[in-house]
Every structure is written in C-alpha cells, then in structure tokens.
Amino acid sequence: MTAPRTTRLAALLALPVTLALSGAATAPAVAAERTFQINLNQLNDSGGKGTAMLSLNGNQLTVKIESEGLVPGQPHAQHLHGSTDGHDFHCPDASDDMDGDGILNNTEATHRYGDINISLTTQGGTTPDSGLAVDRMPMADAAGKLSYERTLPVSQDVVDHIKDLHIVQHGIDPNGNKKYDFEGAGKSELDPKLPQEATAPADCGIVEGAAVGSLPVGGVETGGGTADSNEIPTALAGACGLAVVAAAGTLVLRRRIRAAAAAAEPTGRGAA
C-alpha cells in the first residue's frame, strides 16, 4: 500500500510544476514597441527647433513632432530623409552652402541628409512623390508652432534602418515678412513655381537613440548582436519567472515526497 500511495502523492504534487513549465514553453513572444527621439535644430538661421518621436510597433510607424520658430501661418514640407541601405547621412551646416549665396537650399543639403524616404504629409500618400505636396503638409500656427502626429505603414527596410533616418522640416523667412515670397531668396531650384523660401530646410535632426527598454537595430529583435539595454523583454522575463517558480516547486516537491515516504514506512516498534 505504501508504494502506490507515495506514487499518487508525487503525481499530485508535481502537477503545479508541470503546468508552470508548460506555460513557460508556450508563452507567446511579445514584440516590444521601440521609440526614438529626434532633436530638431535650426538651419538657415530660421529659428526653427523642436522634438520628434518615432515609435515602431511592428511595421507601423507613429511620428509625433512638436516644433516652433517656423514661418507662422505657412505650410511646412517635412520628410524622413536618409538611407535604408547602410549609407551614413547627417544634418548639413552653413558650410554646405556651395554657391555662397547665404541660403542653404535643398539640393545643397541633400548630399548631407540624403533623399526623401517618407513624406510626412497630414493625409494621402507618403512616398517621395509627395515631397512637395504643400497642400497636404502641416501648417504652423500664428505663433510659428507646429504639432504633427500620424501613424503609417512602413517597409521592413525602414524598420531595420530606422536609426539611419532623420527628419527635415522646410520653409524659411529670410526677409522677415512672415510669408513665402520670391523676394527673400528667389525661385526654388526644385520647382520654379515655388519660392526658395518654401523649400529650403528650416531644421534637421538625427535619431538620438533608443528609449529605455527598446532594442537597437541589429540587436535581438532583428536576429543579430545583443541588446544594449539592461531591460529584459517581457516575454523572456515571464519565461524566466516561470522557470524559477518551477525550480522552487520541484525542490518543495522532493521534500514533501521524502516526508510522505518516511511517514508511510513502518517504525519497527512492535515488530516480531
């Protein structure tokens, strides 16, 4: 009778540990959202500045921008510039004014910040073809402040190379009359129907790095390298926790089995 009873007891006590280990093995992996900050700094002495946040959730990119010092009441073309093939681009400076006319135009700046990857329009298309769709670009308010937020699907190349992209906002007012005109800087080299003031870059910013708890490009999430964060991904932490619980449960189980077996053994008193 002793052996079957001990076996049944062991099976009952082992059930919680088995369930815990099963849960650890089948727990679904949860992809963490990655968030990056961009600090926008002025170009062309525009006075423009601001902060942008890029948040990636799978292939959905949410862009939030808060900027100020822009031409009031005017639309400001804005884009994600850069490369998704590993080319390293940066924001330009005054030394990139090739013709020395005092205005850093878009063509002069492009060799520094790269071509348009995504047009940050308020609605409709976001391809480079919408780069000059000023009717769909956000407009600064009467105080020169601009708020923007949009979530859009992006390619896997953008997901993998998000740290190689950066934001540029366009639109300057060198003659200070609070509007775009041809008197300030002449015609745009991109489209002669537009004034240069409307297309010249006003500010630019590169990705500063990942927020706490996110994974870098090329890290664990993309299959190579290691994470540069001390944070443990949620799914991994949950599995580790279950493993610890299971190990503790196994130790308690062994102790209980020994105690049950000892209680079931004859003490030897009263034997013939």
Rank of each mutant, 00 (worst) to 15 (best):
Leu21Thr: 02
Gln60Glu: 14
Ala263His: 06
Asp88Asn: 11
Lys178His: 13
Gly58Trp: 11
Asp164Val: 00
Thr151Gly: 07
Ala247Lys: 08
Tyr113His: 14
Glu231Cys: 08
Met1Ile: 06
Pro28Asp: 08
Gly100Asn: 02
Leu43Lys: 05
Ser130Tyr: 10
Leu132Tyr: 06
Val217Tyr: 10
Ile257Asp: 07
Val168His: 04
Glu197Ala: 07
Asp228Ile: 10
Ser147Pro: 00
His161Ile: 05
Ala94Met: 03
Ala200Trp: 00
Ala52Lys: 08
Asp157Lys: 13
Ala10Ser: 15
Val154Ser: 04
Gly184Ser: 07
Thr127Leu: 09
Asn44Trp: 11
Pro192Glu: 15
Cys240Gln: 14
Gly224Trp: 12
Val154Lys: 03
Ile65Gly: 05
Pro174Arg: 00
Thr110Trp: 07
Gly270Thr: 00
Val17Gln: 13
Glu208Pro: 01
Ala200Thr: 01
Ile65Lys: 03
Ala3Pro: 10
Cys240Pro: 02
His161Cys: 03
Leu9Pro: 03
Thr84Phe: 05
Val217Met: 05
Glu66Thr: 10
Asp97Val: 00
Ser119His: 03
Lys145Pro: 03
Ala77Ser: 06
Asp129Gly: 04
Ala235Glu: 11
Lys179Cys: 05
Gly47Arg: 10
Val158Asp: 11
Gly69Thr: 04
Leu43Trp: 05
Val207Glu: 14
Gly86Glu: 12
Ala25Phe: 05
Ala31Ser: 15
Ala200Phe: 01
Ser46Asp: 10
Gly184Asp: 14
Ile162Ala: 09
Pro128Lys: 08
Asn106Cys: 00
Leu146Cys: 10
Leu70Trp: 09
Asn41Glu: 12
Ala235Asp: 15
Ile118Gln: 06
Gly238Pro: 00
Pro28Thr: 06
Pro195Val: 10
His76Gln: 05
Pro138Leu: 13
Gly23Lys: 02
Ile167Cys: 07
Val220Arg: 10
Gly224Arg: 08
Val212Tyr: 13
Ile172Arg: 02
Thr151His: 02
Pro16Arg: 09
Ala29Val: 09
Val63Met: 09
Asn57Arg: 11
Gln123Pro: 00
Val63Pro: 04
Ile103Asp: 00
Thr51Trp: 09
Ala31Lys: 13
Thr234Ile: 09
Leu40Met: 14
Ile65Arg: 00
Thr2Phe: 12
Ala25Ile: 02
Glu149Ser: 15
Gly23Met: 14
